[in-house]
Nucleic acid binder design. Structure first.
Lengths: 152, 152, 152, 152
DNA sequence: TTTT
DNA sequence: TTTT
């Protein structure tokens, strides 16, 4: 069942700090809002209008901790991931939907001042492999291994 | 205001027919649900589980009419677009959110039997340009020109 | 060192069979040409012209073996990867360049007839992880783990 | 003729200034090298190695002029486009290949100091459409209209 | 030839 | 060398 693709690529600015949530089993999840902009030119008035789109970014485990450590409100980041719409029942019994971007890769685009890794963070955290005698290639982007996903 | 990117790329199957809506000014909009799949292997039980993600695709004007004409429920399509979350107030006065994919490009991936264009639809419909003496390059994908967007 | 992105996404048809090469250490590499098309409308003559672009796809290890097993000349596939230009000296001492697409993910788009996996191939081969009590999420696309890259 | 996709997405730094070339018919072309990085950890020695990949970016017409005006060596940019491999015969009669990225969209990622548009450049230059009474939506990224392509 |  |  497949032959499908669900991919999102965003470049935007953090609208707030990364909010972490830690689980008993040792896992963690980080969330932050990301803003992208779109510009209109109203054909009637000729004025330019900017619309902001907010995306709910979700990162997990080591990647989440890296984000929390190095990202701040206002920073620019490239995020790659997939769209996930969760649904739940509200108090009135209505089905409600919430769409998130589950991040799988990201790259920091804000150049930080001091001894901060900005871009140069330890890529592919926790990929945890050990094949001797061969170089391990890692992306310039930080990838979140599928292996340590949590069950939600 | 910008330096941002809001891009979605999906390959999936139509969950229903394209539903058209025509406007007085001559514009039109088409909507259809698109399914992408994700596969889990439950680590405890070892069984494989498939989750389906549904995306609300929105196409406009000529592109919408092409989709309505050539796409059917079950067909596979590549869709490129941007994420747009609209909000409105429900009857109880709560703010509700609905996330759509506003398609900017697409390619039909289902091979149709008869004299149907399947892939070979007239690309870049209504791009409406006329620069003489030079070949017009057009993408293999159908692009929806920004110019004929409607105000919503 | 980074903050960069090198990503290629292709949908095309195989121009030939997957050619495998096996290494002593147990690794393997598969290569095949992939065709994408672009359509021109010549503005002077009004005739439509199709240009074909050929991409050199390179897949490694388990992913290569899956490709060899299930892909044939003419099949359609989605390939995600990165651009890599290798250079070498030709017989005349000139520097020559060859650009390849090193595949990191792919999805088969040709629906196969019989009991062939077509889409439903065992995703994420060899990701080889073992974290108990949690479901392993895997993409609908087949990912080639970075860990088993070979040194070239 | 199609159902194919040829898409490249890069974030990198300019290795040199934008080199312009103007044609008699009024068209223009801009070229610049773009660097992306990839990081290895050599499994034997444990040392981290950075490999740089150079991409030949080609931009046309108004987009080229915007690039020349606002981009400098070292600047970071997001480039979207397609892969195009050109071939020609060298002096020895050998067929030689050169792979370029024909840019279709881009976004400046370097924040400029002074009154420079950096990100806020006039998007969608020369899209040249005139549909009254409706807002024109334009991407945050600069798009190069297909219409003014030149015949090479 | 870029960047960190 | 693919596909429509």
């Amino acid at each position: 069942m497949s032959g499908t693709l669900n991919k999102v690529m965003l470049i935007g600015h953090l609208g707030d700090e990364v909010k972490m949530h830690y689980f008993e089993g040792g896992g963690s999840i980080g969330r932050f809002p990301l803003a992208t902009n779109e510009t209109y030119t109203n054909r009637t008035t000729g004025e330019r209008v900017t619309n902001t789109e907010w995306h709910n970014i979700v990162v997990r485990n080591k990647a989440a901790e890296i984000c929390e450590k190095y990202l701040s409100k206002g920073d620019r980041i490239y995020v790659e991931g997939r769209i996930k719409t969760r649904q739940w029942q509200d108090d009135s019994g209505n089905t409600r939907y919430s769409t998130e971007i589950q991040a799988t890769d990201f790259t920091f685009l804000t150049t930080k001042k001091e001894g901060q890794p900005a871009d140069g963070i330890p890529a592919k955290p926790a990929q945890g492999s050990a094949q001797p005698q061969q170089p391990q290639t890692s992306d310039p982007v930080v990838s979140t291994p599928e292996d340590d996903d949590l069950p939600f």
